[in-house]
Design a protein around this nucleic acid. Structure first.
Lengths: 127, 127
DNA sequence: TGACATATATCCTCTAAACATATATATTCA
DNA sequence: TGAATATATATGTTTAGAGGATATATGTCA
């Protein structure tokens, strides 16, 4: 993908260009489904879910965590025991777990849509 | 999906909420791959590709068409023959066709990511 | 004690979608 | 024949979400 090629038009949207859907919320919910965690650990760890490469932007993670907590999808508490600075540990709530279920359904639906689009493309490839 | 339920938090991101990736550009490119077309026809027709329900918002279609043409992915000409008002007919350029190829690759990649995420979920469903 | 690591957090900017609005020509119908 | 409707085009504004920048605090280590 030559998005960074200097003679690539800048205004046109290219696959993987900025602002693609990155499923940050669903990745956070998933991480907390597996195990309670804290911001910094999430920043480093959510790339395992495939939508983010390397470390997630802190801005995204903390904003999402705040929103999620305001809306009751996660809860948090300070943990001061253990090594290093105090950590704010987040835990998934039952409602958060339910929203993750919805995300999974949404993703399944998205997969169908994408596969259908690809099929249309292949059926028209020679035209 | 209870997004419209009045006691659903409004600030939290829910699947299918506003601003999800809608693949308008790829849908337009696909439509023009199949057959040259004009704005109004695209508005009515791109729902066939699955990402838009009903008629696409005119604002989205015309803006995208303008951008696509500015960047050489499509070309257009006025067609005044035939019934009804004059139509501005758009045709896919070779570069546009190439970008559609990239979109297809991007989508295949996205499918893999989504399926992987779903698999992680199912592997952790009982925790 | 300063450099570095861990850990948290907010603000600003930009992009893409949603929404609103407008105009012009052609066709239909009372 | 004129108003209503359909076809066809287009732009401006607002909103939501991602990207980027920046800052602060505590703990660890050389």
């Amino acid at each position: 993908m030559s998005r960074k090629n200097s003679n690539t038009p800048k205004k046109s949207r290219y696959p993987g260009a900025k602002k693609t859907e990155r499923y940050i919320q669903s990745s956070i919910l998933m991480a907390l489904k597996i195990r309670s965690s804290y911001g910094y650990e999430l920043i480093k760890g959510i790339s395992q879910f495939g939508f983010v490469e390397g470390q997630a932007p802190p801005g995204m993670i903390y904003r999402h965590l705040r929103d999620l907590e305001e809306n009751g999808l996660v809860s948090s508490e300070w943990q001061t025991q253990g090594a290093g600075p105090a950590k704010r540990v987040y835990r998934l709530t039952p409602e958060g777990s339910e929203v993750l279920d919805f995300w999974i359904e949404y993703m399944k639906n998205q997969v169908e849509k994408l596969l259908n689009f690809i099929k249309i493309y292949q059926n028209n490839k020679m035209t």
